[in-house]
Design a protein around this nucleic acid. Structure first.
Length: 877
RNA sequence: GGGUCGUUAGCUCAGUUGGUUCAGAGCGCUGCUUUGACAGAGCAGAGGUCACUGGUUCGAGCCCAGUACGACCCACCA
């Protein structure tokens, strides 16, 4: 079979995706093996994968594939989140473009459109997960609005309500005027913005002496109409005389009292604060304290309401402009100044959030928080990287506030609460059950009307690791008992509060068990300049385009190689190029082996009983595998990949293959040939979790295999023995070869010029240099000999403590050699001095550990030996 | 305002319990190399007072304190 010049990923990836699925390798059912369970952080059902997802899914796939190849029953559950606000906003937009106003639709009609939308676009995310090579169990795909999942959400709502943890009440909440719904505190993102501080005159009311006024600083003149008091600090002399007096609110000319409260900071602004209980959380609290009226001057869409009396129907920001104009016209605006402030934005719609008083459902969090905190503090759940997130997690849970869980939307789980005409509420899983409650009450016979609101998306996704295995709706389900608690959660650090902490709470609340054992937080993916990826900057690459251009393996490689554990990742397409080049390197190894195979005839020699190169690489391979195990166990996946990359590129390709490479007139012998194939297979297996497609493809192109001999299920070996002596010898020989090459390079000796090499090794290195006979001929175009006499015409170089004599046909400039030797000598002497100093220090000898002293003594001996060799060489030059 | 993390080669980062044959990797850069796997490559090389200032120690990139910058999180100051 003819192999193409370069590796072409597209067809290969498609083929293996299909074959793996046909063979059901990623399907998992409970069995006698230990489970390794991962539930995907469900992306928004109508979304597309961005680079953050790509990183997350790749990390999960690496862990899952590795577990699968290490004897675990690996189960990775895919799925998606209904994402109530985000999806509803998209559907509303889509309808608007069609000329349909959501307000003219019934709930049922709207949901019909929403489900159509979900059917149409919900699959995109799944096909992207598949393209990336994720080894998920597609038979387990779960959507947070699936029937059973919906029921689970309703069930826990009722349970929490019956336990007194859910209540309904009027509170000041965060309102998204764009989506027209309440938000939780976590859904508000604060950003620094430059605003203006307006200084406005409030005239003091009473009698004829109306010249007097108080100046008040405000950022929000459009809320002036909602003012119901002005507040100053009781200790503030400037305003002490105003006790019991009233001021006139501008624009609406309402008289409101001056009140005194220590909350007010005398030093800020003018020391006088307008109180607008309906539109500011602090004012609201002060209003409660002084029993002030509440005038809500905003509609749910952020326009001014009738209660505002002026600017009715104008958007709040438009109203602000008008208010400023009018105040100016009336001579009430004293000045305006720039002001740095923080404003809250809705995470989903990016609308400026309004504090608003409204009746919502809340979940009490204090009780839920405790076990969730304990589990992490006592190590039952481990967070990686721990140092960075443990404190954040702890602080949030210790200061957690009640969670506003109702949303004024239609897309989501509808709150299972029914009201009768008297305003009594009945919470039950079904309308029938609520009806039973009604009949048993004094309101018997009245009509029931269900609450219009749905639940916060996170109130469904916090059940994810349980309900994907039916753990809530069917508590004794065999899958749940087998797979739960899951093994590891991989997610972005931005949803530690939204999701991670709440899943832990839910796990303990409903199952008295943690949902996962480890949490691995990936960093945020930024562009190569360190900026966040965003649509407006246009720096967010399209995943499918990247896969088309470089192949999925290269994308996975690129994103992993530049992804230090827990740190933000600066995404640069250059790293994907590196991944593609790595593909090509692997491909070329395959081509080389095929070339050898063609030449493999019965002329092959089978006589060689020992070969250094194969012995060395076997040890190197196992040694590195041990290192990689350690790295992966501590979630240093990027480091692990670097190790594998270097093992393949440097140790295998640049050293091992060159060492076993047949000379042009020679033939490779079978043992070396078979070993090489075996090593290559082992390397492919090691790399497979990171780059599944090309490794599987090459694995099969290497030789004919039985039907189920696929890399993706091949089990890793458990014995990883290595021989340190051989490894050390390998390092010495590598260094020797490099030094000879350097000599050639410095003396401008082309590879065609043969040299005569004679080595006079230090005793302890003699055996190592004997191994040269297995590998040297392929390396440096030279004859060589050990310990034979040599005349002084040869050039000398020093490797370790060993002298290399090199004879060439050309006459070489010995000054350069002399310079090098002198430089080396100088360094060694300095080094020896520092070692001597240390060993001469009594306190060092007394305090240091014996092995440290022994090491220093060895350093001393080595340095002395080397100096001796150097001096002899110089003397002879 | 409170807190967390970071500052090591031009860039992005490793450096495990403190021991100068550990100051490293990848990318980038420089030079050489194009008929036997691979120029999407090979070989070799140059580049760093480990942010700064003190301290602990026989010994500090690593521990402690402070300073300066940077990033992020949390918090109701108009």
């Amino acid at each position: 079979m003819e192999l193409s010049k370069n590796y072409t990923p597209a067809l290969v990836e498609e083929k293996w995706t299909r074959l793996w699925q046909e063979k059901k390798y990623f399907k998992s059912v409970p069995d006698s093996r230990k489970p390794f369970t991962v539930t995907i952080p469900p992306p928004n059902v109508t979304g597309v994968l961005h680079m953050g997802h790509t990183l997350n899914e790749t990390v999960q796939d690496i862990l899952v594939r590795r577990a699968r190849m290490s004897g675990f029953n690996a189960c990775w559950v895919p799925g998606s989140d209904h994402a109530s606000i985000a999806t509803e906003a998209k559907v509303v937009d889509m309808l608007k473009k069609k000329g349909i106003d959501k307000n003219n639709l019934t709930r049922e009609e709207f949901l019909k459109y929403a489900f159509e939308w979900k059917e149409k676009y919900g699959g995109i995310i799944y096909s992207q997960i598949e393209k990336l090579g994720c080894s998920v169990d597609w038979d387990r795909v779960t959507f947070t609005m699936d029937d059973h999942y919906y029921k689970a959400v309703i069930k826990v709502f009722v349970e929490l309500y019956n336990n007194g943890l859910i209540y309904r009440g009027a509170r000041m909440i965060n309102w998204d005027p764009s989506a027209k719904t309440a938000l939780s505190d976590e859904e508000v993102e604060y950003k620094e913005v430059t605003g203006k501080l307006y200084y406005v005159k409030y005239k003091v009311a009473g009698g004829q002496q109306t010249d007097e006024y108080i100046i008040i600083a405000t950022q929000r003149p459009e809320t002036i109409m909602g003012d119901t008091a002005v507040c100053v600090n009781p200790a503030d002399d400037r305003y002490a005389h105003l006790k019991g007096m009233k001021v006139i609110v501008p624009l609406v000319n309402r008289e409101v009292p001056v009140i005194f409260d220590e909350y007010v900071d005398q030093a800020f602004g003018t020391g006088a604060l307008k109180i607008t209980p309906a539109h500011d959380i602090n004012d609201y609290n002060i209003g409660l304290k002084y029993n002030l009226p509440i005038i809500d001057t905003l509609n749910e869409d952020g326009t001014l309401s009738h209660a505002a009396e002026v600017f009715i129907g104008l958007d709040r920001f438009e109203a602000r402009k008008k208010a400023v104009e009018k105040l100016k016209a009336e001579g009430l605006l004293v000045k305006e100044e720039d002001y740095q402030t923080r404003m809250g934005f809705s995470q989903r719609t990016n609308a400026v959030v309004e504090p608003r008083i409204s009746t919502q459902w809340f979940l009490k969090m204090k009780e839920l928080a405790k076990p969730a905190l304990d589990a992490v503090l006592n190590g039952g759940i481990k967070i990686h990287p721990e140092e960075r997130f443990l404190n954040t997690y702890k602080y949030w849970l210790e200061n957690v506030k009640d969670w506003c869980i109702s949303r004024q939307l239609w897309w989501g789980q509808r709150i299972p609460a029914w009201y009768d005409a008297n305003g009594n509420v009945y919470v039950a899983e079904t309308e029938e059950a609520a009806g039973v409650q009604l009949q048993a009450s004094s309101s018997s016979g009245l009509q029931l009307v269900q609450d219009e609101d749905v639940l916060d998306t996170w109130f469904s996704s916090w059940l994810w690791p349980m309900e994907v295995f039916n753990g809530i709706t069917d508590p004794d389900h065999k899958d749940f008992n087998y797979y739960y608690p899951t093994s590891v959660l991989v997610t972005g650090q931005d949803i530690i509060f939204f999701w991670v902490s709440r899943m832990i709470m839910a796990g303990f609340q409903f199952k008295h068990q943690k949902p996962f054992s480890d949490v691995y937080f990936t960093g945020m993916v930024r562009d190569k300049l360190g900026r966040k990826m965003s649509k407006s900057l246009g720096n967010s690459p399209d995943l499918l385009e990247l896969i088309d251009k470089y192949g999925a393996d290269a994308v996975r490689f690129g994103i992993m190689i530049s992804s230090p554990a827990g740190n933000d990742l600066l995404f640069d397409e250059a790293s994907l190029e590196q991944g593609r080049n790595f593909n090509n390197k692997l491909w070329n190894v395959l081509k080389l082996i095929k070339l050898w195979e063609q030449r493999k005839t019965n002329e092959y020699k089978d006589v060689e009983e020992y070969d250094f190169a194969t012995e060395w690489f076997q040890s190197k391979l196992n040694y590195t595998r041990n290192e990689i195990n350690v790295l992966i166990n501590q979630f240093s996946l990027s480091e692990a990949l670097k190790k594998i990359y270097s093992l393949i590129w440097d140790d295998f390709c640049s050293w091992y293959i060159e060492w076993v490479k047949p000379l042009s007139e020679d033939r490779p012998h079978s043992i070396k040939f078979d070993k090489t194939i075996y090593f290559f297979e082992e390397l492919l297996q090691l790399l497979h979790p990171f780059m599944p497609f090309i490794t599987e493809e090459i694995y099969h192109l290497l030789k004919e295999r039985p039907i189920d001999d696929d890399l993706t299920i091949k089990q890793y070996p458990s014995q990883l023995n290595y021989n340190s002596n051989i490894l050390n010898e390998g390092e010495l020989l590598k260094r020797a070869i490099t030094t000879i090459r350097e000599f050639r390079s410095k003396n401008q000796l082309g590879n065609k010029n043969q040299i005569e090499l004679t080595i006079h090794p230090h005793n302890e290195n003699y055996e190592a240099y004997e191994k040269f006979r297995y590998i040297l001929p392929n390396q440096v175009n030279s004859t060589w000999a050990l310990n034979v006499a040599i005349n002084n015409q040869a050039s000398k170089i020093i490797v370790s403590k060993d002298t290399f004599f090199i004879k060439t046909e050309q006459v070489l400039n010995k000054d350069n050699q002399k310079q090098d030797l002198l430089k080396d000598l100088e360094y060694q002497k300095g080094f020896l001095q520092s070692v001597m100093k240390k060993l001469g220090n009594e306190r060092f000898v007394q305090n240091a550990k014996p092995e440290v002293i022994a090491l220093e003594q060895k350093k001393k001996a080595d340095a002395e030996a080397k100096i001796k060799v150097l001096e002899e060489s110089l003397a002879n030059l």
